[in-house]
Design a protein around this nucleic acid. Structure first.
Length: 286
DNA sequence: CTCGGAGCCTGTCTGC
DNA sequence: TGCAGACAGGCTCCGA
């Protein structure tokens, strides 16, 4: 579901829980908790304060005051919704738990109770994961991860080097490869390629200097615009306040196959690259 | 090593 | 109306 702009939006919303303290944790789908049992996870985070909320690629990181970090990956359909604690209209934890467990809404799989807030974790397809990591484990993930495209480290020169590492693979696969560039998923890959006027099936080693520059520029432009618009809500993405983003109104190609290109009236095409649907304008993109 | 394909899950939509 | 099949925002694992 969420790509970099959506995760970034959620991370901004979650700044509200910095300084707040976990009081309880409930999981209806314990399998989603990866490196530890749900019970142990709950025990370990109990009474910990949230020291910081950040993002590593598409992974949401809740840094705790005991040095550990809760790492949440929303995958396709994960949703984090933050509500005021008083919304539950109960005074005691036990009451909240009982009421919740008895009337658990569909797809609400995990609940983080904090002193002032409740963080609800929904996930239709059960792909999303939660882990509790120490500093070394975070470092290992970082080591295998590429560059974050909205940071200054992502220079045109750096981008060229990454493309060279991508060898003769298709440009869309390289854009979506997290060991090279972080956070670009299926929606933004198609949109970036349209903006840069490059066909998704082009091999990286066939790209001209000018096209590489355009791709670098469009990557930042599209991602930043999407962050400004608080993400793309195609079906079920919502931010942590349960509101839709609005980038879906600015899509040029994604899921617009058999509709006219907004720039040249050519029909938008769909193909499959790396098992993923790919959308492009065969006239605008070369 | 790289690559393509299956798999994880559930829901929705399409076409027969 | 029913039902099978395709498809969905991500990523990992497996075998060739």
């Amino acid at each position: 579901m969420p790509e970099l702009p959506e995760v970034q939006t959620i991370v901004s919303d979650l700044q509200e829980i910095v300084g707040d303290q976990f009081t309880d944790f409930f999981s209806a789908v314990p399998k989603a908790i990866k490196n530890i049992s749900a019970l142990e996870f709950g025990k370990q985070i109990k009474n910990c304060k949230v020291a910081m909320v950040s993002r590593l690629g598409k992974i949401i990181l809740l840094g705790l005051d005991n040095g550990k970090t809760i790492a949440i990956h929303l995958k396709m359909t994960g949703k984090l919704i933050l509500v005021e604690r008083k919304t539950w209209n109960v005074e005691r934890e036990e009451n909240a738990r009982t009421i919740l467990v008895r009337n658990l809404p569909k797809h609400l799989h995990h609940i983080f109770f904090l002193e002032n807030k409740v963080l609800k974790f929904y996930d239709v397809r059960k792909f999303a994961t939660i882990s509790l990591l120490d500093k070394d484990e975070i470092a290992t993930i970082k080591k295998n991860y590429g560059v974050d495209p909205i940071t200054d480290t992502f220079s045109p020169k750096k981008f060229s080097l990454l493309l060279a590492k991508g060898k003769s693979r298709k440009i869309k696969e390289v854009l979506m490869n997290n060991s090279l560039i972080l956070g670009i998923g299926n929606i933004y890959a198609s949109e970036i390629l349209f903006d840069a006027k490059v066909l998704p099936s082009r091999k990286t080693d066939s790209l001209t200097e000018r096209e590489i520059k355009a791709l670098h520029f469009s990557t930042r432009k599209i991602l930043k615009k999407a962050i400004r618009l608080r993400g793309t809500s195609i079906s079920d993405y919502r931010d942590a306040k349960d509101k839709s983003g609005s980038f879906q109104d600015h899509l040029y190609v994604y899921k617009r196959n058999n509709q006219k290109c907004k720039k040249c009236d050519t029909m938008i095409s769909r193909s499959v690259i790396g098992q993923r649907s790919t959308f492009f304008c065969s006239n605008c993109q070369k």
